[in-house]
Measured scan of single mutants.
Amino acid sequence: SLTLTVRGEEAVRRWYKWAQAHNLEVEVETHGDEYVLHIK
């Protein structure tokens, strides 16, 4: 499992696509303009 902090929706989309390509689940938490992604 992997936890990432990114800024901006574009980065979130990029990681989301990456995770889907690897059959992984993604949980997204929003903290202001930062997003915490939990990839499992």
Score class of each variant (00 low, 15 high):
residue 1 S to F: 13
residue 1 S to N: 14
residue 1 S to Q: 13
residue 1 S to D: 14
residue 2 L to R: 06
residue 2 L to P: 05
residue 2 L to S: 04
residue 2 L to E: 04
residue 3 T to S: 09
residue 3 T to L: 08
residue 3 T to Y: 06
residue 3 T to D: 05
residue 3 T to H: 11
residue 3 T to M: 09
residue 4 L to R: 06
residue 4 L to E: 02
residue 4 L to A: 04
residue 4 L to N: 02
residue 4 L to P: 02
residue 5 T to H: 15
residue 5 T to W: 06
residue 5 T to R: 14
residue 5 T to L: 11
residue 5 T to Y: 09
residue 6 V to E: 02
residue 6 V to G: 02
residue 6 V to I: 08
residue 6 V to N: 01
residue 6 V to P: 02
residue 6 V to W: 01
residue 6 V to K: 02
residue 6 V to D: 02
residue 7 R to N: 07
residue 7 R to T: 11
residue 7 R to Y: 13
residue 8 G to C: 09
residue 8 G to N: 10
residue 8 G to L: 04
residue 8 G to W: 05
residue 9 E to H: 08
residue 9 E to R: 10
residue 10 E to S: 08
residue 10 E to M: 07
residue 10 E to Q: 09
residue 10 E to P: 05
residue 10 E to R: 09
residue 10 E to T: 07
residue 11 A to D: 08
residue 11 A to Y: 05
residue 11 A to H: 06
residue 12 V to G: 03
residue 12 V to I: 08
residue 12 V to R: 04
residue 12 V to N: 02
residue 12 V to H: 02
residue 12 V to L: 15
residue 13 R to A: 11
residue 13 R to K: 14
residue 13 R to W: 08
residue 13 R to D: 11
residue 13 R to S: 07
residue 14 R to W: 15
residue 14 R to F: 15
residue 14 R to Y: 13
residue 14 R to L: 11
residue 14 R to N: 10
residue 14 R to E: 11
residue 15 W to T: 02
residue 15 W to H: 02
residue 15 W to I: 14
residue 16 Y to G: 04
residue 16 Y to V: 15
residue 16 Y to A: 09
residue 16 Y to E: 14
residue 16 Y to W: 10
residue 16 Y to T: 15
residue 16 Y to M: 15
residue 16 Y to F: 15
residue 17 K to T: 10
residue 17 K to E: 15
residue 17 K to V: 10
residue 18 W to Y: 07
residue 18 W to N: 01
residue 18 W to H: 02
residue 18 W to K: 01
residue 18 W to L: 03
residue 19 A to T: 03
residue 19 A to F: 08
residue 19 A to D: 00
residue 20 Q to N: 08
residue 21 A to F: 11
residue 21 A to E: 14
residue 21 A to M: 13
residue 21 A to V: 11
residue 21 A to D: 13
residue 22 H to Y: 06
residue 22 H to K: 06
residue 22 H to F: 06
residue 22 H to L: 09
residue 22 H to D: 02
residue 22 H to Q: 07
residue 22 H to M: 10
residue 23 N to V: 03
residue 23 N to R: 06
residue 24 L to E: 01
residue 24 L to T: 02
residue 25 E to P: 05
residue 25 E to L: 13
residue 25 E to W: 12
residue 25 E to Y: 13
residue 25 E to M: 12
residue 25 E to T: 15
residue 25 E to K: 11
residue 26 V to E: 00
residue 26 V to A: 03
residue 26 V to Q: 01
residue 26 V to G: 00
residue 26 V to P: 02
residue 27 E to D: 10
residue 27 E to T: 14
residue 27 E to W: 14
residue 28 V to K: 04
residue 28 V to A: 04
residue 28 V to G: 02
residue 28 V to Q: 03
residue 28 V to P: 01
residue 28 V to T: 07
residue 28 V to Y: 05
residue 28 V to E: 03
residue 29 E to A: 07
residue 29 E to P: 01
residue 29 E to D: 05
residue 30 T to Y: 12
residue 30 T to G: 09
residue 30 T to A: 15
residue 30 T to P: 13
residue 31 H to N: 14
residue 31 H to Q: 10
residue 32 G to Q: 05
residue 32 G to S: 04
residue 33 D to Q: 09
residue 33 D to R: 05
residue 33 D to W: 04
residue 33 D to I: 06
residue 33 D to V: 06
residue 33 D to E: 10
residue 34 E to Y: 15
residue 34 E to S: 11
residue 34 E to L: 15
residue 34 E to T: 14
residue 34 E to P: 02
residue 35 Y to P: 03
residue 35 Y to H: 05
residue 36 V to P: 00
residue 36 V to F: 05
residue 36 V to K: 07
residue 36 V to Q: 05
residue 36 V to H: 07
residue 36 V to I: 14
residue 36 V to N: 03
residue 36 V to E: 03
residue 37 L to I: 14
residue 37 L to P: 00
residue 37 L to E: 00
residue 37 L to S: 00
residue 37 L to D: 00
residue 38 H to K: 11
residue 38 H to D: 02
residue 38 H to L: 09
residue 38 H to S: 07
residue 38 H to M: 07
residue 39 I to F: 14
residue 39 I to W: 02
residue 39 I to M: 06
residue 39 I to G: 00
residue 39 I to T: 01
residue 39 I to L: 07
residue 40 K to W: 13
residue 40 K to G: 08
residue 40 K to R: 13
residue 40 K to P: 04
residue 40 K to E: 04
residue 40 K to V: 08
